[in-house]
Amino acid sequence: MAPAVLVVDDEVAICEGLAAFLEDEGMRVHTAHSGEEALSLLATDLPVQVCIIDLRLPGMNGTEAIVEIQRRAPDVRFVIHTGSAPDAVLRELGRVGLQATPIFKKPVCDLTEIAHIVRTLSRSA
């Protein structure tokens, strides 16, 4: 079955660009522009295997959102897509035990790699 992906980014164009690419790859893609919006989408029993999420978000930040999503939907796998400096990101993820999460640093010039990782993760979800 085609992987279902949730893209969380406050930058609308980033959400749309990623969605367009992944949809062209044959995936089902939903978008949310904040952690809160993501949580309420998931509350509607939206089937999602992989969540591509930014860390700097308005309201609850990315790591808080991840922790909350994990609590409610433990099977969801995450891909970090962020423009922050890698050192800071690793520190933040390490704090919540997510250091093994794949990280993509913006800008990602070739989205094929993200698509590949998403597909791999969705199979293990």
Binding site: I14, G17, T82, K106, P107
Partner: peptide, 9 residues
């Protein structure tokens, strides 16, 4: 990096 990401993708 965000706007660059938009451009790249």
């Amino acid at each position: 990096n965000n706007p660059l990401g938009i451009l790249a993708q």
